[in-house]
Amino acid sequence: MGAPKLEGHPLFEKKTIEAFIKGIQDTLGTMASTTVKNGRPHIENHFEMKGDVAAIVGLVAPPLKGNFIISFTKQAMLQIYKNMLGEEPGEINSEVKDAIGEIANMVYGSSKTLLNQDGYNFQMALPTVVLGEYFPAKDHQGVTLVIPFSFENDQQLFVQITVNT
């Protein structure tokens, strides 16, 4: 298999990656008092959901289209929920899923603001939350930008960007 064809795609540019990293770090730093470190962003040939629970936001920045996916391992999300609200639900219930949606909303909103100041035209969209497997539409299953993050005790979360091919 050769190198991913979309490596130079605008949604995979350095400033896009930096905006999403800043969005994650600002959101979780401010709302959950959690310092999150990013790992090395990389491109994978096929989409595969990394975490156990995720929120998906449709990216629309005409003419660009894609998906912004933020996913957490179960323990990471429960820890973030505790850090945000001081509550320990013990499982991924409807309240925790709601929190993931709101986190995605804030991360996307703040990243979008930065990117639009840089000349993009990202539009606001409402997130959808999924638990377990997620299979995006066929035209979003290909090349995926993956940005891993970690925080206290190696808890993990991921940002994935797919583009409409």
Binding site: M84, L85, E95, G101, E102, N105
Partner: peptide, 12 residues
């Protein structure tokens, strides 16, 4: 707010 989480945070 459509997200209960944000309502909870503001109420808190």
């Amino acid at each position: 707010d459509d997200f209960a989480t944000m309502r909870k945070i503001i109420k808190k």
